[in-house]
Amino acid sequence: MSVYILVVDDEPDVEALYRQHFRRELRAGRFLMEFAASAPAALQRAADIRDPSLILILSDINMPGMSGLEMLPEVRARRPDVPVIMITAYGDAETRKIALERGAEALLTKPIDFGQLRQEIDARLGQLA
Rank of each mutant, 00 (worst) to 15 (best):
L56W: 02
D60G: 07
E15M: 04
R19L: 01
I61Y: 01
L100T: 15
S2F: 09
D48P: 13
T95E: 02
E74N: 15
A36C: 12
V7M: 05
Y18S: 08
F35E: 03
L58K: 12
T88L: 04
D92F: 00
Y18G: 10
S59T: 15
D10W: 05
I85S: 00
D51L: 06
M71F: 00
A39I: 05
A99L: 01
A123P: 13
P64V: 11
A99R: 13
R19N: 01
K97P: 03
E74S: 14
P40I: 02
P64Y: 03
D51S: 08
S59L: 06
I87H: 05
D9T: 08
L128M: 09
D122G: 07
A42M: 06
E11N: 08
G115Y: 13
D13I: 09
I61V: 06
R30C: 12
D81N: 14
R50F: 04
R76T: 15
G91M: 00
L128C: 10
V82G: 13
V14Y: 01
G115A: 14
P83E: 04
A36T: 12
L54I: 14
G91K: 06
D81T: 12
I98P: 04
V84W: 03
E94W: 11
V14T: 13
R24Y: 07
Q127H: 13
P83C: 01
G115V: 14
A42N: 03
F22Y: 08
L125W: 02
Q116M: 10
P80D: 09
D60V: 04
Y90S: 12
L43Y: 05
T95N: 11
L54C: 09
T88Q: 11
Y90K: 14
L117V: 06
L117Y: 05
R79G: 10
D81L: 07
Q20E: 09
V8S: 08
V82S: 13
G103D: 07
E101V: 02
D48G: 15
L17Q: 14
N62M: 10
A41E: 11
S38L: 00
E105I: 08
Y4G: 08
A16E: 09
G91P: 08
Y90E: 12
L58R: 09
V7E: 03
L26C: 03
D81V: 05
I49V: 04
P80C: 09
A93G: 11
L107Y: 03
N62T: 15
R24G: 11
S67G: 09
P83L: 05
F35Y: 00
E25K: 05
V8I: 13
L125Y: 01
F22R: 12
A36N: 11
E15D: 00
F114Y: 08
F114A: 06
V7C: 03
Q20I: 11
I121T: 09
G115Q: 15
A41S: 09
E105N: 09
D60M: 00
P52F: 02
L69S: 07
E101M: 07
P83H: 02
I55E: 07
L108Y: 15
P52I: 11
R45H: 02
G91S: 07
E11T: 10
P111T: 14
F31W: 01
M33Q: 15
T95W: 01
E25D: 13
M71W: 04
R78A: 15
